[in-house]
Amino acid sequence: MYRSMTSRKVRNYIMVIVMVAVSFLYVTPLISIIYTAVERGGAVLVETGLKFLTDLPPTPLSTSVGGIAPALIGSLLASALAILITTPIAFLMAFYVTEFPRHSLSRVCEVVVRAFSGVPSIVVSMFIYSTVVMSMGTQSLLAGSLALAIVTLPYTYVYFTSAFRSIPESLREAAMSLGMNRVRALIHVYVGVLRRSLLTGLLMSYVRAFGDTAPLLFTMGFLMNAVFAGVLQQSNAVPLMIFVYALSPYENFHRVAWGATLVLLIIYLALFTVSRVLVRGVKL
């Protein structure tokens, strides 16, 4: 009896040590990335201040760091436009699939979304390039937004579906027993009850769109000489800029890339924190 207790305790200690070690191995690279971004990007932000967010990028041989305004504006707008395109589609699909789970159209929706989520985002970029960019004759903010919309659709759909599935059956019955049809129940009850969950889903999808690079590679263009040229003209994006500048041979471009990385990280963490706070506030 005594021996088996000791053996259990030893096994417990070993497992705790293994789990701590694995967690440490998992978290270390993340902390390292954040530390490096803060260290290198922080130096750039301290040097340039808010101008980093409002200035145009530097030329290759200039001594100044310049700013990331075209990329920042491009990212904010393209992500917003993508969410604007995605939201109504994902919302209606999620509502339909939740309300009529056994209908054949629901099954089609599920299959389509699953297929979309499995498509590599670079393929989406090429698809938009061959359809939208080729026909428009130029890369554009619109093309980038469409690519981001396709990539974020499954995420938004999944968030919305799980939100609709979380509605207590008692509230559905209350709405129906007052004579509401499904659309009235959606407008007057479900949206109100789920407003925080739906908003969280939107924010998380926005975060996803904001940080994605591959869909923009062939679609967005690389605007550098203006903050914004129009929806149908070339634009830029923060992840795209980091990708291109990090691969360039110029030292000041590397510094811009680190600064942009920190900005991206800050925006991501801010949006993520807001969405977590919203989730915590959900009371049904």
Binding site: E173, A174, V189, G192
Partner: peptide, 21 residues
């Protein structure tokens, strides 16, 4: 059926007021 439910309203066993209103 919606018209029927407007005229024949059910109150469930579990209190289910709309929490957002």
């Amino acid at each position: 059926p919606y018209d029927l439910r407007r005229r024949v309203v059910l109150v469930s066993q579990e209190p289910n007021p709309f929490p957002h209103m």
